[in-house]
Design a protein around this nucleic acid. Structure first.
Length: 156
DNA sequence: CGCATTTGACCTGCGC
DNA sequence: GCGCAGGTCAAATGCG
């Protein structure tokens, strides 16, 4: 684990067990992988925010799904086929982070048990069906939950 | 003027 | 079958 980064205690959110501090050096993701998910060797980490935030990317791998369901923790859960789902929790003053892609907002929704609305974004690139959801954590608005769905079919 | 955002309405899946 | 909650649509509005 890179000493310059801070992994905070588990979130109550079952799909977000750790927090990555923004504006820190990129994580040593190989150490991170070993430390947190030794049983899911096929899982890979990918940069999702221009190098200052990292998240699990779980390819279509049923073993990963089983593991996360059993332990009720983990960063992400997979979907069938080519879809992938990435969820992570960041400490940030703004919901929208520049991850290199261009997003178009298409919806906002008040969520039950959370006074903060959830925002829905779609990749604005033609033919790219990637979506993301952004919402602030209920107990601590300093934290933002971001969920990516799908894979980009183009470069940032 | 063209494109992005806002926001209420509508759609859909799920639990009871 | 019904109601609720989450997700998406699309018309209106704003902005460069």
């Amino acid at each position: 684990m890179s000493s310059s980064n801070t992994i905070l205690p588990a979130s109550p959110n079952p799909i977000c067990t750790h927090t990555v501090e923004l504006n820190s050096d990129p994580l040593d993701f190989e150490d991170f992988l070993l430390e947190t998910h030794t049983e899911t060797a096929s899982t890979t980490l990918s940069p999702v925010n221009g190098g200052c935030s990292w998240a699990w990317e779980v390819p279509g791998n049923s073993a990963c799904v089983d593991y996360m369901l059993q332990t009720n923790e983990g960063y992400a859960k997979t979907m069938e086929g080519e879809d992938s789902k990435i969820a992570f929790r960041t400490k940030s003053g703004v919901e929208v982070m520049d991850d290199g892609y261009k997003w178009r907002k298409y919806g906002k929704k008040k969520i039950k048990n959370n006074p903060n609305p959830r925002h829905y974004y779609r990749c604005s690139m033609q033919g790219c069906k990637v979506k993301k959801k952004v919402e602030r954590e209920r107990e601590d608005v300093k934290f933002v939950i971001t969920t990516y769905e799908g894979k980009h079919n183009h470069e940032p």
